[in-house]
């Protein structure tokens, strides 16, 4: 885990790379999201000052795009596709099962900080519907019954 100073140094580098480009706010926010895992208020104030834009603008962009998160996300980000194809193939039931197994609402993070559950638009893997991703791993043709085993795998990976 990088220290706070290292994180801000990394952010400074992203800012320096983009500062003079039009539309610098997006890449800087993307960088911040990657570095900090989220874009909390202090980071947003820092970006606003560095790019000479208002905090309103930073916050507006950060809350418009779902890729940005205001609170830290869990170690494993579980994204369940609710796009049309997945939805008609029953992804809502998969999502419901996940809220039950993880005991968090959609958009929430487990108290131990391991899992964040979110619903997404089409992930572009309609042929595998219903689909979910856990970080960069893709799971297709899911049924609610398959969920506990998948979650268990990540829980155990952590313990090992």
């Amino acid at each position: 885990m990088a220290s706070v100073k290292e994180q801000y140094d990394a952010l400074d580098r992203v800012i320096a790379e983009n500062k003079d480009l039009p539309g610098a706010l997006m890449p800087v926010l993307q960088g911040a999201q990657e570095i900090f895992g989220c874009v909390p208020i202090d980071v947003q104030k820092y970006i606003a000052q560095a790019l000479n834009v208002t905090l309103s603008e930073v916050y507006g962009v950060a809350t418009f795009y779902s890729q940005f998160s205001l609170q830290p996300k869990g170690e494993y980000l579980i994204s369940v596709c609710l796009g049309t194809a997945c939805y008609v193939k029953g992804s809502q039931k998969v999502l419901d099962k996940l809220t039950e197994v993880l005991n968090v609402p959609v958009g929430g993070t487990t108290p131990d900080g391991r899992f964040t559950l979110q619903a997404t638009r089409c992930l572009g893997a309609c042929g595998l519907a219903p689909v979910m991703t856990v970080n960069d791993e893709v799971y297709g043709r899911l049924t609610p019954d398959a969920i506990p085993a998948i979650i268990d795998k990540y829980r155990k990976a952590e313990e090992a």
Binding site: T54, L55, S56, E57, Y59, G60, T63, F64, S66
Partner: peptide, 20 residues
């Protein structure tokens, strides 16, 4: 040149507000 309000969130949740 002040900008203390702006659109926040998206879709049905969109509102004109101060940040945070």
């Amino acid at each position: 040149n002040i900008g203390v309000i702006g659109p926040v969130n998206r879709g049905f949740a969109t509102a004109i507000e101060s940040p945070w």
